[in-house]
């Protein structure tokens, strides 16, 4: 059997809310090591990769490897029935065609149980090559979200340029053009307010803001976002999930044809 217990249902809610507009259906791959998920959007431009380590759960048991095919809109409907502080348990027997989702309120006075139908999905796994990224930026996720939202009002496409002093987000649209630069700031008192740049060489790539906006929906997962870029390869936008794992998004760049 498979059983995974999370202290806070809100974590699962945040993960599903972060990806459900990008991905309709996805396999949760469960093993002794934990839960992973890899799914592309329907245009094959972006990919999200989730990794939740088994030791990040309150209780975790997985007797044999399982792929649980889920419709994320339906999972989201069930998660709406959970209180943020509820304990959430995912459970399935081997060969079952449903996933049992239970929510227990902190004082155990309210227990909800749902059976979500599983679906058969073709696993379309992509091999992601190990990449030594030439430029990496860690910055506050709320700052990233705001920049992407603000630039989306001006144009459809955003350039991201990492230099030694910081990162510059540029946009062009019918009304004109603009940019927002965020300077490296490693002296901020709180770690989550720091902007850190690690760079072997300057990198500039161009991306569709539509997808970056989808990624920014993961902001509630944590205070930090990490961008990793190399010339002419997809950017990685990673939201670390404290003590459990991460949610990563890969986005193919726009390129001159």
């Amino acid at each position: 059997m498979f059983e995974a217990k999370l202290n806070e249902a809100s974590l699962l809610k945040k993960i599903v809310e972060a990806i459900r507009e990008l991905v309709t259906d996805a396999n949760l791959d469960c093993s002794e090591a934990g839960i992973t998920m890899q799914a592309m959007d329907s245009s094959h431009v972006s990919l999200c990769a989730l990794n939740l380590r088994s030791d990040g759960f309150d209780h975790y048991r997985c007797d044999r490897n399982l792929s649980l095919g889920l419709n994320l809109a339906n999972l989201s409907k069930i998660l709406k029935c959970a209180g943020n502080n509820d304990v959430c348990t995912l459970r399935t027997e081997d060969d079952a065609d449903t996933l049992t989702v239970t929510f227990e309120s902190p004082k155990q006075e309210r227990i909800s149980e749902f059976e979500l139908k599983l679906i058969a999905l073709d696993a379309e796994h992509l091999g992601i090559p190990d990449t030594n990224y030439k430029a990496q930026v860690r910055m506050p996720s709320a700052e990233f979200q705001r920049i992407i939202r603000d630039l989306s009002v001006i144009g459809d496409t955003c350039s991201i340029a990492v230099g030694k002093d910081g990162v510059r987000f540029g946009v062009e649209g019918d009304l004109g053009s603009g940019s927002i630069s965020v300077k490296q700031n490693t002296a901020a008192e709180k770690e989550e307010e720091r902007v850190e740049v690690h760079m072997e060489e300057p990198v500039e790539l161009t991306f569709a803001l539509r997808y970056l906006n989808f990624f920014a929906k993961a902001t509630p997962l944590g205070p930090i976002v990490a961008l990793s870029m190399s010339p002419d390869v997809p950017v990685v936008v990673e939201f670390p999930i404290e003590t459990v794992g991460y949610l990563r998004f890969y986005l193919a760049p726009k390129i001159d044809e």
């Binding site: 592309m40 094959h44 431009v45 992509l126 091999g127 193919a252 726009k254 390129i255 001159d256």
Partner: peptide, 14 residues
Amino acid sequence: MPGQSSLFTFFTKA
């Protein structure tokens, strides 16, 4: 204007 590339250009099907 630059065009949108596909992930399949960079990542291979496992």
